[in-house]
Simulated assay, not measured.
Amino acid sequence: MKKKWDKRFLAGCVISVAVFGVIMGLFMNGVFSFLGRAKSEGSDTLVKAIRQASVQCYAIEGRYPPSVEYLEENYGIQIDRERYNVFYSGFASNIMPDITVIPAEGGDDSDWQP
Rank of each mutant, 00 (worst) to 15 (best):
Y88R: 02
W112I: 11
D111T: 14
L10A: 08
D44F: 10
M24E: 14
Y70K: 00
Q78F: 14
F91E: 03
N94A: 08
P97E: 02
M28V: 10
L71V: 02
Y84R: 05
S89M: 01
K2L: 09
A59H: 06
E61S: 13
V19S: 07
I77C: 04
M28K: 03
S110T: 07
K3C: 03
G25W: 05
R51E: 14
L26D: 04
L35M: 08
K39R: 03
K4M: 06
S67N: 07
Q113L: 09
S110N: 10
V17I: 03
D80P: 11
V19L: 12
S54R: 02
G42K: 06
Y64W: 02
L35H: 04
A38K: 15
D6T: 15
Y88V: 02
E105C: 02
S89Q: 07
P97V: 00
R37I: 11
W112S: 14
S67K: 03
I23C: 11
I15E: 13
I95G: 08
Q113F: 07
Y84W: 10
V68R: 02
E61A: 14
K7I: 09
G106L: 07
N85D: 06
P66A: 08
G76C: 06
A104M: 07
A59C: 11
A38M: 13
I102C: 00
A38I: 08
I77D: 06
F20W: 08
A11G: 01
G106R: 02
M1I: 09
Y75L: 12
S33Q: 11
I102N: 00
Y84S: 02
S16C: 14
I77V: 09
S93E: 15
K48P: 05
V86G: 00
C57K: 10
Y75W: 12
R83T: 15
Y75Q: 07
E61C: 13
W5R: 14
S110E: 13
Y58P: 08
V47Q: 06
